[in-house]
Amino acid sequence: MKAIIPAAGLGTRFLPATKSNPKELLPVLDKPVIQYVVEEALEPEGVDGVVIVNSHLKPQLEEYFGPKPELESYLRERGKDRYAEVVRESGELPVSFVYQDDPLGLGHAVLCAKDEVGDEPFFVLLGDYFVPDREMCVRMAEVSRAHGGASVIAVAPVSHDEVSRYGIVAGEQVGTLDGDDLDLEEPGSVLRLSGMVEKPAPEDAPTNLCIVGRYLLSPRVMELLQTQRPGAGGEIQLTDALERLLKEEEMYALVVDPAEGCDTGTPAAWVGTSARMALLDPATREAFLEALGDQALS
């Protein structure tokens, strides 16, 4: 099974920082965002490779995941074996690349990886969001197995006033991941989906559960994307293909905790995630608070 990470965007919200350095390579602590996502994608049992959908304008991504024997040797000669190991490990991750040079939408980006996926189910992980404990996709795979290999998407509750900013799902609760008695919107709740609505008005939203950027999808999705007409913004939308899939196959949603993941899609979100990770890491927490000085108390 493969996992797809769409990463062909040019990171315009981060300019000028992304003029020569892809957004996906901006670091959170000492690791670029894209590596967090790759490692998360490889966590579920059965995933043996990650396909990054890249742009030819960003060769740095492919270079990052390639071997660097000269750098490794340089570090080892100077007794910096720990650093040499992290260089080696990042170059040995099972990552391959396909290219999307025209911004034709998320659905088109996923379709670019069709040959690599073949006739197997596949994950899709959006590249500006990662889950530090890497467990979200693992739990999605559990839900899929419990429902005959059906497609599963991750959703999270948002406030009623925010539903118009997201893709919102409709469905009925059919159980929970661990068997506990949970409300519909509580993490661990499982829904059988009946529809999806892109950015509905609050009064029209069927629920307040939004799609958070993690999908485990049937191979049928690739076939549907090949005939999918452009939708919102003139782009091929993955959500449109999933709505068509619902007419043929059952789909499920796993409710997750909104605080479980880390957003890096905007400069403000990236700074917030960097601060959060610095506070969670015992190796950096004290130094980070010291660097903040009086600001840490305000």
Rank of each mutant, 00 (worst) to 15 (best):
K2S: 08
G9A: 09
D294W: 12
V51Q: 04
V37L: 04
H147M: 07
T264K: 04
A141D: 02
L225S: 05
L93G: 08
T18I: 10
V174D: 03
A291M: 10
V38L: 05
S274C: 08
G233E: 13
F123E: 01
K247I: 04
V110Y: 10
S194K: 12
V212F: 01
V51A: 09
G66R: 14
R145G: 05
P230G: 01
L292G: 06
P132K: 01
P16E: 05
L177M: 03
Y252D: 01
F130C: 03
Q226W: 06
T207K: 01
R76M: 11
L191W: 03
H108V: 00
A232H: 15
E120P: 08
D204L: 13
L26Q: 08
K2E: 07
T12F: 02
A84G: 10
L280G: 10
C112N: 09
I211M: 07
K80Y: 12
L10E: 12
Y166M: 07
I5T: 00
S144T: 13
K247E: 15
G265H: 12
N21E: 15
T266E: 01
P44F: 01
E72P: 02
V143I: 07
M1V: 14
G231F: 04
F65Q: 06
Q237R: 15
Y129H: 11
R276G: 02
A205H: 01
G148V: 15
Q237N: 14
R78M: 06
L10V: 09
V124Q: 04
G195Y: 02
V163W: 00
Y83L: 15
Y74C: 10
K58F: 09
A150Q: 06
P157A: 10
P230R: 00
D257F: 04
A201N: 05
P6S: 02
E286Q: 11
E260I: 08
E43V: 02
A291Y: 05
G233M: 09
M140K: 02
D178N: 12
E172R: 13
G265Y: 13
S159T: 14
G105Y: 10
S55I: 09
H147K: 10
L191R: 00
P157D: 09
E162Y: 11
L193K: 00
S20L: 08
G195M: 02
S159A: 14
A268M: 08
P219T: 09
V212Y: 01
W270G: 01
N21H: 12
G105L: 08
R276K: 11
D30L: 13
G118H: 09
V124W: 05
F14W: 04
R88G: 11
T239C: 12
D115Q: 14
E142W: 09
G265A: 14
A84D: 03
E286W: 05
G171A: 07
P6D: 02
A201V: 06
E198R: 08
D281F: 08
F288E: 00
H108D: 13
D102T: 15
L125Y: 11
D294E: 14
P32H: 04
K19F: 10
A141V: 01
L71N: 03
Y36F: 13
A201R: 10
D294M: 13
A275M: 11
I5W: 04
H108N: 12
E62M: 13
R82H: 12
S73H: 11
A205F: 07
A201F: 11
V158T: 04
V143R: 00
